[in-house]
Design a protein around this nucleic acid. Structure first.
Lengths: 102, 102
DNA sequence: CCTAGTTCTTTCCTGATTGGAAAGTACTTT
DNA sequence: AAAGTACTTTCCAATCAGGAAAGAACTAGG
């Protein structure tokens, strides 16, 4: 069986969110938003979608007295992301594209 | 500037079509359809979308007396695919993974 | 106390996509 | 004439995506 692309992760904005989160333990709402250059509402909605899928954990806390939100990948989210990248790799591999010169 | 994902190519079905075509000079309608396990109408529509974008050439001909359709990537389509994979790679790379083979 | 600001979340709305089913086109074969 | 091949187009219903605007919940300032 060919590995399947995961539609929850494949959407461009969510792919970028998940990939960003995969690189770190945890990331702040504003950091992700500014990094991807998206609006608050878009990030909020995609983060909720990823949480609903069980891929992202949303943690609420405070810095000083101000509210703050952090995101992190769940174990399931990391596994789904890894599987998705494997699926992408399988697709790209058949085209013969390579990072190597020549 | 960060390389951008190309929405025409990013859609799962079209990504697979383009990647399949990138591997060959030309591919038959039925070959692509069966390879991706999609319906005639879906392939027809996606192929037209890729043609409209200038990424795929649709050639009509005959085998014996039966009509047949072949698809091939245009130079532009190959360039767009390469750029798209580079964008994908840029996103995935930050997580430490890769979509490219060794 | 009242207003303004921060940090998101939700709702409202509108446009774009996607895929399946079914009908259509244009031949060819039986 | 009827059926089959090889698609293409139309019809449709389901998402989905993003922006704007309104909310929510609290804090800070005058």
């Amino acid at each position: 069986m060919t590995p399947q692309l995961n539609p929850v992760i494949h959407a461009p904005t969510r792919l970028q969110i998940v990939s960003l989160l995969a690189a770190a333990d945890e990331a702040e709402f504003a950091f992700v938003r500014d990094n991807l250059d998206i609006s608050d509402s878009v990030l909020s909605k995609h983060a909720s979608a990823l949480e609903a899928a069980g891929y992202v954990k949303i943690r609420k806390g405070h810095v000083g007295k101000r509210p703050r939100t952090w995101f992190s990948l769940t174990r399931e989210g990391r596994a789904a992301y890894t599987a998705h990248v494997a699926a992408l790799q399988a697709i790209v591999a058949q085209s013969g594209l390579s990072v190597l010169p020549g």
